[in-house]
Amino acid sequence: MQLIECPWCGPREETEFHYGGEAHVAYPADPQSLTDEQWAQFVFYRANPKGLFAERWSHHVGCRRWFNAIRDTATYQFHGVYRLDEQKPSPS
């Protein structure tokens, strides 16, 4: 079981967390102005890379707060976490 670093609570066990999919997919400012295809992109399509991926996580049974993480989808290893109001770290 992995240890995941919650930005507020520190390292906690994986089972306390929920996965929330790709990060930085903003809710469109004006959904009504989008075509069906553009809207479908937001609703249904997400990146699925092998390697580093910016994801949303929630410390579900801890502080219940959402945060972002950079994780390697091939090794599962977390390369860093950051709060929602923080910039996505540039790849090192």
């Binding site: 929920h18 809710y27 949303r56 929630s58 707060r65």
Partner: peptide
């Protein structure tokens, strides 16, 4: 409750 928290925290803080 999770659903509402998610929107509140991630989209409309």
């Amino acid at each position: 409750l999770d659903w509402m928290e998610e929107w509140l925290q991630t989209e409309w803080p």
